[in-house]
Design a protein around this nucleic acid. Structure first.
Lengths: 122, 122
DNA sequence: TTGACATGAAACCAAATGGTTTTATATAAT
DNA sequence: ATTATATAAAACCATTTGGTTTCATGTCAA
């Protein structure tokens, strides 16, 4: 895993479940690497690399304090994700609202039958 | 790239820029593989594999019509992304609103503002 | 000052990823 | 019937990814 900047964007950064869990941990509070590592069944080195990826995406930043390196969440880049999502929201919200309408008005979706029944009665 | 189901989730599916562009194209209208391929500088086979990944994440589905396979967008799985994002929204929106407030009221930015906003939330 | 602790850095590795080319098969059009 | 079109499937390949182990370095504590 190289350390050059700009190699990972926010989409790639959140693709990995371990990294998403790291973000969740840092959302609670800032933590040193070893404390983060304690939550996972893998080595400190592996976590350090995940932090590197998150750092390239600018979702976290680390500051050395004494012999520890304290990482903290930096959620702003997620706005890019939100923007990307908003484009698709209209699509699925439309679909879901149609579904919602059917569920809330169970009589409506048999209109054809009802009209035919009315016709018969005439 | 294997074809077994459940191997790719929505987070992985959208991590690749090509796949995001494929989604955008399918948001406009449903299209056969070759029409999608025409928008990219890579082979039809490569695009077919990307469609496979998107299909595993249930973001698209393909239906054979004659000799073509027509793919269409299936945006519902993006709700998972939206839910995941909503957890972090409060963080950055808080930060941005504080910044906005400071920008709009240059006179009264010391610490007091932030502490007062924290108090309101308690 | 001597360990113990927290991290950094490098070498290594297997598997996944993102692409290619080749070959085969079904359908449409002439 | 023949040919062109659209896709499928498989083999192959280089690079990236996600992990490891090992060794070096800086810092805190006794």
């Amino acid at each position: 895993m190289s350390s050059s900047a700009q190699k990972h964007d926010v989409f790639q950064a959140i693709a990995d479940p371990t990294r998403r869990e790291v973000l969740r941990l840092l959302a609670e509070k800032e933590r040193p690497i070893s404390e983060i590592t304690a939550h996972f069944p893998m080595s400190r080195t592996a976590i350090a690399k995940h932090l590197q990826v998150l750092s390239e995406a600018e979702l976290v930043s680390g500051q050395k304090v004494g012999r520890e390196k304290i990482y903290r969440l930096h959620p702003e880049p997620l706005t890019e994700l939100k923007q990307w999502l908003s484009f698709y929201e209209k699509f699925w919200e439309n679909k879901l609202s149609i579904l919602k309408h059917i569920v809330e008005n169970p009589s409506d979706h048999a209109i054809g039958i009802i009209e035919r029944e009315d016709d018969r009665q005439k």
